[in-house]
Design a protein around this nucleic acid. Structure first.
Length: 247
DNA sequence: GGAACCCTTCAAAGCTATAT
DNA sequence: ATATAGCTTTGAAGGGTTCC
């Protein structure tokens, strides 16, 4: 058995499944088994068997004899992903307001695997405060205030792995997370610039899970209780717009 | 009737978990 | 580390259906 696949996985059938779904997505409408087989390079029997199982799971629908299209279950799954991404749009205005109030940079971080990924950041311009999409700024979870917030719901097993990856003791990481949980805010004590203080507040989704972290970066001298409260309040506003009602 | 296509069956090969 | 058993996946072959 030999097959070359650009997106190879450890389980061959999964690569093939991705290939089949990509083909159906590319075509948009119903596609015949023969056409799918040609486009994916899979033997028709192999394509048929996988499509059959995908149809059982609702990922694919039979639009007629020997014709397939994407299934409605993908819509449900896609909606879940979209709900996660919406936080970026909903956060824009509150981020601008917090920037105007404090005069300092506000960022939004989301989790991606074992890293915290910065996705939006405010920028001061002549026309006012703008929020720009940031590409590629990522930090290990345990090394950043935002990342620590995004670890709050992790199991001990996961925390153990993440702590080990950063050369931290599990107990001290857990104690830090407990303090953050109680405070409702994460403060970075070891900022590269001693004059700057970085604080992060949690953004909750409609299920009450931390889905993002709102970060304010400001001079230590000016970072009082009022700005901490403003940061928490802004994060709470974004959470509320995502459907989270604090209980 | 013949060609083209879809779908199912089944033997073989490959993979994975478990025992030693 | 190796052997083994059981499970999964594959592709060829062939039956059934549709279309011209």
């Amino acid at each position: 058995m030999s097959e070359s696949s650009a997106a190879s996985t450890s389980i061959q059938v999964l690569s093939r499944m991705f290939s089949l779904l990509d083909t159906l997505a590319h075509e948009g409408d119903s596609v015949s088994l023969k056409s799918i087989s040609e486009q994916t390079g899979l033997h028709p029997s192999t394509a048929h068997r996988i499509l059959n199982d995908l149809a059982v799971g609702g990922m694919v629908e039979r639009s007629g004899p020997g014709a397939y299209r994407l299934g409605l279950r993908l819509l449900a799954l896609g909606n879940q992903v979209r709900a996660r991404l919406d936080v970026r749009e909903l956060a824009v205005r509150p981020m601008q307001e917090l920037h105007r109030q404090t005069g300092h940079t506000v960022s939004l971080f989301v989790r991606q695997d074992d890293d915290a990924l910065c996705v939006e950041r405010t920028v001061s311009e002549r026309s006012g405060v703008q929020v720009t999409r940031v590409m590629g700024l990522r930090v290990p979870l345990a090394s950043h205030a935002a990342g620590k917030l995004l670890m709050l719901q992790d199991s001990t097993t996961v925390l153990q792995v993440l702590a080990a990856a950063q050369g931290l003791r599990l107990e001290s990481l857990q104690a830090e997370l407990a303090a953050i949980r109680q405070q409702g805010l994460a403060l970075d004590s070891d900022s590269p610039d001693p004059l700057l203080q970085l604080a992060a507040a949690p953004v909750y989704d409609d299920q009450g899970r931390v889905c993002a972290a709102l970060v304010l970066n400001a001079p230590v001298a000016r970072f009082g209780q009022d700005w901490q409260d403003a940061l928490k309040h802004t994060a709470a506003r974004i959470s509320a717009s995502l459907g989270w009602t604090h209980r």
